[in-house]
């Protein structure tokens, strides 16, 4: 079975590595990759690292990218452009932790890319208390 791939993107490598470990425990079947920090290991984002992360989980059902802030978005858009503006690579407008959690579970249900994005973006309206 194919699952929608998920990419976690942050200015911090440690942050996405930690989130990856959490999500792998919940749903080990979904293709999941991370990109965080610059080439030299500093805080920031690196377009080539993002491109590689997308390629590593690319599959026929598509890939959803969750990101933190600012330049992460600019670099993610640039990476998508470098991959030929493939319509199956999509950005989710969602909080990184809760959105990724929802996305990974939705993807694990075998859902379509639209449903995975909807689940991730649903996390924006989440009341935790």
């Amino acid at each position: 079975m194919n699952y929608v791939g998920v990419v976690l993107l942050s200015h911090s490598y440690d942050l996405v590595k930690g989130l990856e470990a959490l999500l792998k425990q919940i749903q080990p079947d979904v293709p999941l990759s991370v990109a965080g920090g610059t080439e030299s290991g500093e805080i920031g984002t690196d377009v080539f690292q993002i491109k590689k992360a997308i390629e590593s989980v690319m599959n026929p059902k598509g890939v959803v990218i969750l990101f933190d802030l600012g330049s992460a978005l600019i670099n993610a858009e640039l990476a998508i452009e470098m991959l030929g503006n493939n319509k199956d690579i999509r950005l989710a407008d969602a909080p990184l932790v809760e959105g990724a959690y929802a996305a990974i579970i939705q993807s694990g249900c075998g859902s379509s890319i639209e449903e995975v994005i909807k689940a991730a973006e649903g996390a924006k309206a989440l009341n935790k208390l």
Binding site: T38, G44, F48, L78
Partner: peptide, 15 residues
């Protein structure tokens, strides 16, 4: 610049 600049200025000046 795309590879070595971490912030938003990397993709902007790089582009």
């Amino acid at each position: 610049l795309l590879t070595k600049v971490g912030g938003a200025s990397g993709p902007l000046y790089g582009t």
